[in-house]
Design a protein around this nucleic acid. Sequence first.
DNA 1: CAGTGAGCGAGCTTCCGCTTGACTT
Length: 810
Amino acid sequence: MTQKAKEKALNLVIVESPAKAKTIEKFLGKDFLVKSSYGHIRDLAKKDFGVDLANNYQPQYVISSDKKDVVKELKSLVQQSETVWLASDEDREGEAIAWHLYEVLGLTPAQTKRIVFHEITKEAILKAIKNPRPIDINLVDAQQARRVLDRLVGFELSPVLWKKVKPSLSAGRVQSVAVRLLVEREREINAFNADSAFRVVARFFVTDEDGKKHELRAELNHRFKTEEEAFQFLSHCKNGQFSVEQVTRKPLTKSPAAPFTTSTLQQEASRKLGFSVGQTMSVAQRLYEAGKITYMRTDSVNLADTAVAAAVQKIKSDMGEKYVQTRQFKTKSKGAQEAHEAIRPTYMDKEAVSGTAAEQKLYDLIYKRTLASQMSDARIERTNVNITVSGSTYKFHASGEVILFDGFLKMYIESSDVEKEDEEAPGFLPPLKEQDVLGLIAMEARERWTQKPPRYSEAALVRKLEEQGIGRPSTYAPTISTIQQRGYVVKEDRPGNPRKYRLVQLEAGEVKKSVKTENAGAERSKLFPTDIGMVVNDFLVKYFPNIVDYEFTAKVEKEFDQIAVGDVQWTKAIDQFYQPFHNQVEETLEKSERNTGERVLGSDPKTGKPVIVRIGRYGPMAQLGDTENEDEKPAFASLTREQSIETITLEEALKLFELPRDLGLYEDKKVVVGIGRFGPYVRHDGKFASLKKGVDDPMEISLERAIELIEEKRERDNKKIIKSFEKEPDLQILNGRWGPYIGYKGKNFKIPKEKDAEKLSFEECLKLVEDGGKKAPATKKATTKKKTTASGKKTTASKSTKAKKSAAKK
DNA sequence: CAGTGAGCGAGCTTCCGCTTGACTT
């Protein structure tokens, strides 16, 4: 056979991910070349929506700029191939990827085979190769409808916000609902009134037959509303008789949780390892690329048969037959498409992997969760004990658990928000029988406050979105960073506030009252909606309630399903949505007021001028005085990060106008404290130093502390310069966030890792600058600038034609 | 590039879902 003929006989398989391509190539052998498309290769053009509204919503697709090389390579490989196997995922997006490839690569039906598999196992792949099918154009149309709908919603809605709220904002089917969830929770929290009651806990002892004493904690089945009632009860208990009334035992079984999906992995990694959802995904990506776990963006809880078999083998050999119990889990989440397996170790017998600490920890989590899912139920006996108090109708209650058979608990315990200490607490109960008499050690009634609803963590928000069927595994992490980038949401720690609580204690025959302090409402790494987020949300809820409705996605998904089975034409479905939606947009542009979230707080007692808060061009601000008063301009001040338009008081707002504040002199120059774009700062001799968050208060800060901050800043600035040269003051070796680098005439250049930055000579530096200049002619800033100007020109042209068009229509 | 807060006005921003690197100051 000639070389050419050999090449022509080639089978080209195209999958979505390069890591997958590598694995599959091994299964298929020499006759097959497996390549990756790296996801979608085309998308709607940015200009004019990328949708031809005058021509039945015809999509205008362009090859994505970062896929040009991929497409070029695939095209040339197609030339050498007899058969092209389109092996993208078996879901809506995957079918569309196959179709785009078919179109762009100019394939013919005769040379094209569409294949699908849900597991990356040899059996599954070989079976798929034996069962090719044509591209399902109805499913492709469902994807086109999804894509066009999202584009129309996003690109019509966002400009409304630019006009009515603030430039550069965004709205969309997914992100706007995510923000809505946070805003509504924040309002619940603001409206929440904490209520308190006294919870009574007692420590008893019981003496067994051998005269040994055992301790027992029990809680009263009633909470007292007032301190007086609690005091009365404890006083009564001073001389009370406590006896066991009833002991009941109840068997329980616990079952393991399903193997991980993207969403559950993000939640567990957040709770157990403290990872953000973005961190989890990038660590998982590395494990996936190294072939250690299966694909990490999935909504399926299914495991391949071979994986279950391997898990069984491992459980048997490590722990014994009685720990094996296989299960098929079913997905509960709305709109799951299950194109992949659950996230599991590639090899079930591999208990640990090498790599970074984060990779090892995440792998451990995945390994244990997967194995546990095929292990036996745990059998537990729960004991409940009631204890009577002489002369009272109230009873104490205690419960304990004994694990009869640990089963999957041996491997993995799914975390809730309960801490470990609590898990140990309901462990053992001492041996007790009915009629046993108990001795009292101590008793206390502590005032407990009802809890505000919790703010969402990133992972909790993902869970909520998934429950509602909003967003996909590949978009959870990006969505969360988008809403933070737009300034709708900030992720923060809040320290909480001291709160007093009352305590009544009975000890050594005496009842005492006291008042103590606890810290309440502290939050770690939670999502807080900002004022902008709230104003945008309120605007959308008012004018586009149908779009930000929690059910909107579910509703359109039903339409997409009908398109996918061929019952509805996709352009018809889009038309039915778009006509009324577009009218809604036009009407809103015409009728709605600019929305600044303005709130009048009252008037300044000194001058009588009105004090209002609203969103200004640069964010939330307070204003003292009227804009209508032409003689005198109003004074303005930014709100601090912690303050909110919704909750700020008149007093707090008035304080803002006391800034900037003169603190005095240092080295004969003025020291001024103020609040700027980046938060509270101290200014001295033309230089700025930020105040420490949570430590310094701009209203209270002293001159001494301000000087400290100035000196610290100086120190940092000095450390920034590692080396400079007399010959060329523009060239410096600097210390940056990612280690040393060379700064030269406003541009930055890398220093190779093996070089010692401090020992570089002037000539060596110049050489690095030259080399760097050749390889990467510009830093990232410069490249993005170039990009924006290039595309800027395009959009300029298109925008003006579009403007003309719409003007002509009218 | 930090005390700003609709001066003219043009041009720009934006969606959701598939995928990875390249590169950050």
